[in-house]
Simulated scan of single mutants.
Amino acid sequence: MDAATPAPPATTAVSPEAGAVRLAARGVTVSHAGSAAPALADASIDVRAGELHALVGPNGAGKSTLFGVLAGDLAPDAGDVVLDGAPLDGIPPRLLARHRAVLLQQNAVSFPFTVEQVVRMGRAPWARTPAELDDDAVVARALEATDLVPLAERTISSLSGGERARAALARVLAQACDVLLLDEPTAALDLRHQEDVLRVARTRARDGAAVAVVLHDLNAALGVADRVTLLARGRVLATGMPSEVLTAEAIEAVYGQPVDVFPHPVTGVPVVAPRR
């Protein structure tokens, strides 16, 4: 990185003010060879400190493409992505790994590592830094948060798909970043652990982290997100409060499925119910 390119600081001793934009994409376009239409067209999004931001939309809407761009794993054909004001593609990988953590849908582990060893891999960016002294405590907290303490000595290969997904999340939590990108983190989980994962993500946001989550479950988005971005056909259609974006009319227009949206009788949180 040259001297003219700003970079995030090496530590995060000072927490960003709630609502501050941590990660942003501006006018991002991504095209795939052989496809007539772009996978993502002129998309913009802000991921803010202290908020859980859900990316929702039907299959093929562009959610995973936008996620890949935000993570830095996919270079856009046009547009810009910045982390704390610094161009994402100019930040050295090791420094980037100290500021944003990414949970992908697929997290294959080929060797017989134990769960604790996999979670401890999340501490790699902090090797040979003062933060290395916190490794044991951070790993222990990540195992506890994901209900993996009883499985810590089990090999990853012996776990169910849902248990492996929780181990992958624990590794991301152990990375101790305050920008978290989670791609469908509840997909392989049972009901209890789905709620546990969403609770962890929401808690991290409440503690000041900027959290972006790809979700298929619209009720989960309505229940836990502070902000929602709705995508369809590679475009951002709307961004705002969940109850303002995920209306019955918008959902039917995007998903092609009539629904009713009404307040939960106990919590008052909007609930989506397909018309059958």
Rank of each mutant, 00 (worst) to 15 (best):
A108V: 14
A3C: 00
T12A: 07
G57V: 03
R206K: 15
V139F: 10
F111N: 04
A78I: 01
S35P: 00
P9Y: 03
T186N: 06
S31N: 04
L237F: 10
T65S: 07
A24I: 12
P270T: 03
V56T: 13
E51N: 05
L66V: 00
R166M: 10
A165W: 05
D178N: 11
S158T: 14
P38C: 00
G60A: 11
V149R: 11
G90Q: 14
R26T: 14
V138F: 10
Q106S: 12
T186C: 10
A97D: 06
P263H: 07
T114R: 02
D73N: 02
L133A: 15
D260G: 08
T5K: 00
G256Y: 05
L23G: 13
L159G: 05
V81P: 12
A201V: 11
L70A: 01
V261H: 08
V214S: 02
P93A: 15
P38H: 06
V28S: 02
L198G: 01
L83G: 11
L83E: 05
T186I: 12
A170Q: 05
S158A: 14
E132I: 14
D196E: 15
T29C: 00
S157W: 07
A39D: 01
A7W: 05
P185V: 03
R202A: 15
V102T: 02
V271I: 15
G122V: 08
I45R: 06
R275E: 09
V236Y: 01
Y255C: 00
G234D: 00
A152R: 15
L230E: 08
P76S: 02
L148S: 10
H216T: 08
A86F: 06
D217S: 09
R94H: 14
R199S: 14
G79F: 07
S35C: 08
L133W: 09
L96D: 05
P263C: 05
L70V: 00
A140C: 01
L231N: 09
P265D: 05
E116V: 14
A25W: 02
L173E: 02
L182V: 05
P150D: 12
A273L: 13
V259N: 04
R202Q: 15
F262L: 14
A124G: 00
V119G: 04
G161A: 11
E153Y: 09
R164A: 07
D136W: 02
D260A: 11
D217A: 08
P76V: 03
P92Q: 07
H193S: 08
V179E: 04
A137Y: 11
V236R: 02
A137F: 03
S110R: 13
P38Q: 10
D183K: 00
H53K: 06
G122Q: 08
E17G: 04
A43Y: 06
